[in-house]
């Protein structure tokens, strides 16, 4: 079974800068990590491989330095990885990103399962997984917290909803997006680290995957950022110190109106 894991390199939140002209993220000089949710996707792929055999490939679309994310996944135990990188992909929104990743999956030809994180912590859209499924016209199971059964043809998985958990059966190939509950990601082994160092990471460009230039990068992105601004400052900011027997009633006085509204 060939499992493809989509991983995204994201900036550590906290030190984010925005290009004032293009309104896109400036990645230069910002520490980068694998999107935390994608770590669970990698781990799950490795566990499935132990169970069913096969091959785990990670793919990432990003600038040349995203190579490091692929190597990190190989250090964890992925068999191989591809960096999808081309000037033509600059400015991709989730439509163009899922298109491009779906073209990569198609290029492999033999993929049974595509695993994604439930969302990326920089964009927070949770759109790319279902987008890939839509482009490939294959089923999807989002927000997966457990895979209960899998064989060559089908998968059974549990999906977390707001009000409960549903068990879903799907034919393969299929796209899964996973949540944090699904597993605990392993640390890279020494052997893995050596493999990662030696690995040759192919770089696929738009032409290598037969991408339509109208569907990649800015051209393939229906959304445009029209304005970026700082969030409004919070009102209030009153802090009480001293004896709680005295401060708590003062706080409650302040909260009374909101409280009556909220807890009717």
């Amino acid at each position: 079974m060939h499992i493809v894991v989509c991983i995204k390199q994201v900036p550590e939140t906290g030190n984010v800068r925005i290009n004032p002209e293009t309104h896109t993220l400036m990645r230069e000089g910002v520490a980068a990590i694998i999107n935390p949710f994608d770590m669970y996707a990698i781990e799950e792929a490795l566990r499935l491989k132990t169970k069913t055999g096969g091959r785990v490939t990670v793919i990432t679309m990003g600038p040349p330095q995203a190579d490091a994310a692929v190597r990190e996944a190989i250090a964890m135990g992925a068999d191989d990885g591809v960096l999808i990188s081309d000037r033509a992909f600059a400015g991709s929104d989730s439509w163009a990103t899922s298109y491009t990743l779906s073209k990569a999956v198609t290029k492999f030809g033999d993929v049974s399962l595509v695993l994604c994180g439930k969302q990326a912590i920089d964009g927070d859209t949770a759109q790319v997984g279902p987008g890939i499924a839509a482009h490939l016209d294959i089923p999807q199971i989002t927000y997966v917290r457990k895979i209960t059964e899998i064989d060559e043809k089908r998968i059974v998985a549990e999906r977390s909803l707001e009000d409960g958990v549903e068990t879903i059966e799907s034919s393969l190939p299929c796209v899964l997006t996973v949540t944090k509950e699904i597993n605990e990601p392993r640390l890279p082994s020494l052997k893995g680290k050596m493999a990662a160092k030696k690995a040759v990471i192919p770089v696929w460009k738009a032409d290598d995957m037969g991408c339509d230039p109208k569907r990649t990068g800015l051209n393939g992105s229906p959304t445009r950022v029209s304005r970026v601004f700082a969030p409004a400052a919070r009102e209030g900011g009153e802090t009480f110190t001293g004896d709680p027997e005295e401060t708590v009633p003062r706080l409650i006085e302040k909260l009374k109106d909101a409280l009556l509204q909220a807890s009717r």
Binding site: D93, S94, Q127, G131, A134, T223
Partner: peptide, 16 residues
């Protein structure tokens, strides 16, 4: 889960 699956074939912009 639904919005993205619909936005793709429509070539619609989707803001999360």
């Amino acid at each position: 889960s639904l919005a993205s699956r619909v936005a793709v074939p429509l070539f619609a912009g989707l803001t999360a």
